[in-house]
Amino acid sequence: MPTDVLPTQVEEWLTGRVIAYGKVIPGSFTVDTPLSELGLDSVYALTLCGDIEDEFQLEVDPTIVWDYPTIRELAGGISQLAAE
């Protein structure tokens, strides 16, 4: 398990996922925009978690996306998990 996942790295990757999701145009949001306003509903959280697990070799509960509802908070949560 990688122990040196920086929050900024995760933010960058998550931003890429949000853009790939295709509901918002790049530059129209920040890392503090609620994910729900980026078209990421609770259902998509499940998809995103699979991607997080495979990208960062972590086991994450999909509810992480509910409890860390912005890119910044989620990145913080993920890098914290990686450090554990």
């Binding site: 259902v43 998509y44 499940l46 998809t47 978690c49 699979g50 991607d51 697990e53 495979d54």
Partner: peptide, 8 residues
């Protein structure tokens, strides 16, 4: 929503 991850 689980299908891509599930398939991998």
């Amino acid at each position: 929503p689980n299908l891509p991850t599930w398939a991998r």
